[in-house]
Design a protein around this nucleic acid. Structure first.
Lengths: 340, 340
DNA sequence: AGAGTCTTCCAAAGCGCTTTGGCTTTTTGG
DNA sequence: CCAAAAAGCCAAAGCGCTTTGGAAGACTCT
């Protein structure tokens, strides 16, 4: 059943039927009702390929997925996706993932924009001066950044959590508890979120005249193994920290294992606060010592990103609105006063 | 730059240019070269929307993503996706994720097929008599099942790992080591993979005249917490097992924690073998006691699925070819002879 | 040499929708 | 009551590609 047939059936022109269906004003309400009715009754659905060719709109949002033999997709992605799906489902919005060589995403961005494959894109894990932001911005496709980039002479729309504030609070708490030597086990410090977190920790320390030792901050890919290694190194060297802030629950698993391997305890010998993106399959309260966390649901962020993207596509949202979500600090058993 | 312009520029008809570009035989090789050359020089890329409307082919593969407030996307998905991306990237194949209400995926399947949004789909985590397999099969779109369904009177193409064989081997090893009471902490037993694994364990036990006690098999969503709970229950009741087979590394985290909480040790009091899908961020060799595993890279499976899907789209693969990958059994420190 | 066969190309008809420009008919305002 | 404006509808022209159905010329074969 296509438009032509439907129009014929109603003894109307395709023009009128199309307009009736798409809510244009120049059609009689009575006529519109008839059309809508017939459309529903016959299960008419406009052919998206055709509509697309005519309008250039695809009804899909895009994400360029960095891939490569040495590139692992972040497990956080799946939670984000759950959120995106939550919103998208109820709006018949599809997501198209365009895998790209992690070292050359530009080609892919250009392709999907030139081809008008998607109506909007989102960018995640941005870095300062992130070339994708500049690119997408000049290409003129609606977009939203999940996270924040920096160093541009223009604004852009984004959704971020207050990473700096979160880690500032976490570090401040630790300092209040008497800790003087903090360490930060962070994610890749070329990414903004990691930079912000480090900034937060430093600011909290500075407020008490303390500093983050150069060897007390590690920047690694967020795996259990790297959490373990970082912790061993930190605790085995002289000047070992008495408190650790950690950028992910997965790394925290490694931290806990390392502490135990060294015959130390949490929070007796070292206090630990980790960031929790709220995975359904790994919860901080279930760690052998319940983990204090800075908590922010990445799933909710996914839903919000989809919502804003949809709004931007339909022109309901405009301009460079930045949105920064506060982060909860949840105290559990893994923090205590500094030893000694 | 569109086809018309290119044709004009070459003083050829659109027909000929189109055919030259698409490798049709009825065009002079000399002409083809000219066309190809000009196309490249001017960076001509056929408009996919137009091509799509004309041919009905989209150049994308689809996946219906079950979502819902109470539905969590499996973290395995992201690794699978990495693999899919590995292949898709080099073939300019995009993946479209269509979020659907987990309880009504049929509508979405019908939509994406009716709309010809994608050229092929894959189905994952199938159950016996999985309605999606039947549906997609009647809808007549090329597809591939990652995993296996059962109970149909027709064959279908799939890629699966030898879950039964893997858990058979694992259980057999444990029995050989003298264990008489095994337990299985399994995933959702409505899914085929879980059924096959249980079958494997039972078969191994039966071979030695043993059985899997009804209370020794749990079927749960694969989270750390559920692994913990299941283990506590198993070990605190009478008739506690001396060996556990576990369907996921994530659950194994919970198993290990529970065993420790109870003051028991691995492998002293209980041996443990888990299935490892090969996550980059959580490795069995890094468990406090290195974990014995049945290992199969889900990432490789993702790449293979993409490859076969591409082959099916282009007609290189036909029929209902099933492909079953063997699974490695990797022995590490978490297994030992039965205590006592 | 004429019929038949290839080879190589083309004009034009879709694919199914949106949108432009215009034509009636009705309503409004003075 | 009439001109002007508004309402309601339509035919037809795209959007940019593929494919059908020839047609013209070159070649082969008897």
């Amino acid at each position: 059943m296509n438009l032509k047939q439907l129009a014929q059936m109603l003894a109307l022109s395709q023009t009128t039927v199309s307009r009736a269906l798409n809510g244009y004003p120049e059609v009689n309400e009575e006529t519109r009702r008839r059309v809508m009715d017939a459309a529903k009754r016959h299960g008419y659905r406009p052919n998206p390929s055709a509509r697309r060719l005519a309008t250039g709109k695809s009804g899909m949002i895009g994400y360029v997925l960095p891939t490569g033999a040495a590139v692992d997709i972040d497990p956080h992605f799946v939670e984000f996706l759950s959120g995106l799906g939550d919103y998208a489902r109820s709006h018949e919005l599809d997501l198209v993932l365009s895998p790209a060589d992690a070292d050359d995403q530009e080609t892919t961005y250009r392709r999907i924009v030139a081809n008008r494959q998607v109506d909007a894109v989102y960018i995640s894990s941005p870095r300062p001066h992130d070339s994708r932001v500049a690119l997408v911005s000049t290409l003129g496709i609606p977009f939203l950044v999940h996270g924040r980039s920096e160093g541009f002479d223009f604004d852009y729309p984004y959704l971020d959590i207050d990473n700096e504030g979160a880690f500032h609070e976490a570090a401040r708490l630790l300092v209040q508890l008497g800790h003087r030597r903090l360490a930060l086990i962070n994610g890749d410090d070329r990414e903004s979120f990691a930079i912000h977190r480090e900034r937060g920790v430093r600011r909290a320390l500075a407020a008490s005249g303390l500093t983050l030792g150069e060897r007390h901050v590690c920047s690694v890919v967020m795996t259990e193994e790297n959490g373990y290694r970082a912790t061993r190194r930190l605790l085995e060297e002289g000047d070992a920290p008495t408190a650790i802030a950690c950028s992910s629950l997965i790394m925290a698993l490694g931290v806990v294992r390392a502490v135990r391997d060294l015959g130390l305890t949490i929070p007796g010998d070292v206090s630990l606060i980790a960031h929790d993106d709220v995975f359904p399959w790994l919860k901080p309260e279930n760690f052998s010592v319940p983990l204090s966390t800075t908590r922010s649901s990445i799933r909710l962020a996914g839903a919000r990103v989809a919502e804003r993207l949809a709004a931007r596509i339909s022109g309901l949202e405009e301009g460079a609105r930045g949105e920064i979500w506060p982060v909860d600090l949840v105290i559990r058993g893994s923090v205590a006063g500094a030893p000694g």
